[in-house]
């Protein structure tokens, strides 16, 4: 049943999504963040993906790089809940400390019932700003796949910039982790 569900979601996403290649080299995301990539990245745009951009190398049901650029005070970090829904939205606040931002991202990533376990949280210079890096494990609720993830972020001029990459822990995450670390180190925030 879960395979059917995943297939159905993939079909639905395909039906109303657009996919375009991410060009190698510098890519401006939003107004201020530039990401330098190599390899076969695709930008997968579908309803509900914003405010993040969703990039993937292996396919949207396998790995994803969430790109948050210029998230403003009060902005919700995912598709806003429909009117009448009582599920709380996770919104960025400009006064958030690092732990609060990571807790917010934990909430976003476990909003679908997935589990999230923080493995490491440390300082990191992201886009030349004072930022953070974190690693985590996640069991994806929809198909029970055990994921590994790594995230980077910083707040500059009261706006949040972040990258979060996750993939199945056994093959795909180790395959791409060093590439992601390289991308994160090369991010620039203007």
């Amino acid at each position: 049943m879960k395979n059917l569900l995943v297939l159905a979601i993939a079909l639905l996403l395909t039906a109303c999504a657009s996919v375009k290649k991410v060009e190698s080299g510098a890519n401006l995301v939003g107004e201020r963040m530039s990401i330098n990539v190599d390899g076969n990245w695709n930008h997968f745009d579908f309803p509900g993906s914003k405010p993040a951009q969703v990039w993937t190398m292996e396919g949207i049901t396998i790995d994803e790089l969430l790109v948050y650029s210029g998230i403003r005070d009060g902005q919700v970090m995912h598709q806003e809940s429909s009117a009448g829904s009582r599920q709380k939205d996770f919104a960025f606040r400009k006064t958030m400390q690092t732990e609060e931002i990571v807790s917010m991202l934990e909430g976003v990533l476990s909003r679908d019932g997935s589990t999230f376990k923080l493995l490491k949280l440390e300082p990191f210079a992201f886009g030349g700003k004072k930022g953070f890096r974190f690693e985590y494990e996640r069991i994806r609720k929809i198909d029970n796949v055990q994921m590994r993830g790594v995230g980077f972020g910083a707040v500059d001029k009261e706006e949040l910039f972040a990258l979060v990459y996750q993939a199945p822990r056994l093959t795909f995450f180790p395959r791409h982790q060093s590439r992601i670390e390289t991308i994160a180190k090369a991010v620039s925030i203007q």
């Binding site: 732990e99 440390e122 300082p123």
Partner: peptide
């Protein structure tokens, strides 16, 4: 603790 490096900073 997972966040020990950050707390040390």
């Amino acid at each position: 603790a997972p966040d020990s490096a950050l707390i040390k900073s």
